[in-house]
Design a protein around this nucleic acid. Structure first.
Length: 243
DNA sequence: AAGCAAGCCAACCGCGTATGA
DNA sequence: GTCATACGCGGTTGGCTTGCT
């Protein structure tokens, strides 16, 4: 390790930021904006590298940051988007105002991942790890009936005449109706068990969730039924093609 | 009360990409 | 078209906190 290219010529401080450093960075960026990050430390009078300043601002000092624990609604959004885009923390964070990619990543690794595993789910694929680990399907995870395959992130030629159990979106993303998959399994909502420490969303919350998603996806109402396919397409498009 | 382990989170590192000379 | 530099992102690590024995 020979340090960052942006600060290899300078003696830079590392480790935790002091309140004084925070204040300097905050004052400078609030006044001038960050401009070129590489010049921020010099102009702000900090002995840090630009990269470190950028990270500190984004993850901690930004005024629009939302502090505190994630709400169940945010958690659901993370799970849903992760199922589609995988470990694209920055993309996931874009759907959570006030949250950073680092925060989402940490939350995923420390909480959600473990919970999925405890539910017998592979946190990478969101599929059931094995039948022996199968547990009752919580309503919490039953947002859609489709599962993105790993190939979803690869360039594919759309093929609408594929087998009846899968579909390919206009953007080339393949959706499969997996039998060995939470999302593909059918169940009666009334039979949905209550997750330990994770109460199912109340109807009111579910409605709010739909509103939120519909805002993001151009008035497309999300639905947990098979007919929600259109939602997935829009959602995938907006997420994968965010930029 | 002390020691240990696990969890959590801030920060760092390296790589890929974008941009400008 | 090539190279250098800066930026953004995901993976990983280190240290602090908390809970348990």
């Amino acid at each position: 390790m020979d340090g960052h290219s942006c600060c290899s010529k300078q003696k830079v401080k590392r480790g935790l930021w002091s309140p004084e450093e925070d204040a300097k960075l905050n004052t400078y960026i609030s006044t001038h904006g960050h401009g070129s990050w590489s010049s921020v430390p010099r102009l702000a009078g900090l002995h840090r590298c630009g990269k470190s300043c950028r990270l500190r601002w984004i993850n901690y000092l930004r005024p629009d940051l939302k502090r505190g624990s994630f709400s169940p609604e945010e958690e659901q959004i993370i799970i849903d988007i992760h199922r589609i885009v995988g470990n694209k923390w920055a993309q996931i964070a874009k759907h959570l105002p006030g949250r950073t990619d680092n925060e989402v990543k940490n939350f995923w690794n420390s909480c959600i991942k473990k919970r999925l595993i405890s539910q017998g789910l592979d946190p990478n694929t969101h599929n059931l790890i094995s039948q022996t680990h199968q547990q009752p399907i919580p309503e919490f995870f039953s947002l859609t009936n489709f599962q993105l395959t790993d190939a979803s992130m690869e360039t594919k030629t759309p093929n609408n005449s594929s087998s009846s159990s899968s579909s390919v979106t206009p953007s080339g993303i393949e959706l499969t109706n997996h039998e060995n998959c939470f999302w593909g399994a059918t169940h009666e909502p009334s039979e949905a068990p209550i997750l330990e420490g994770e109460p199912p969303l109340r109807q009111e919350e579910e409605e709010n969730k739909e509103e939120k998603y519909s805002d993001q996806m151009g008035d497309q109402i999300m639905d947990t039924s098979f007919d929600s396919f259109n939602f997935d397409l829009g959602f995938v498009e907006s997420t994968v093609c965010l930029d």
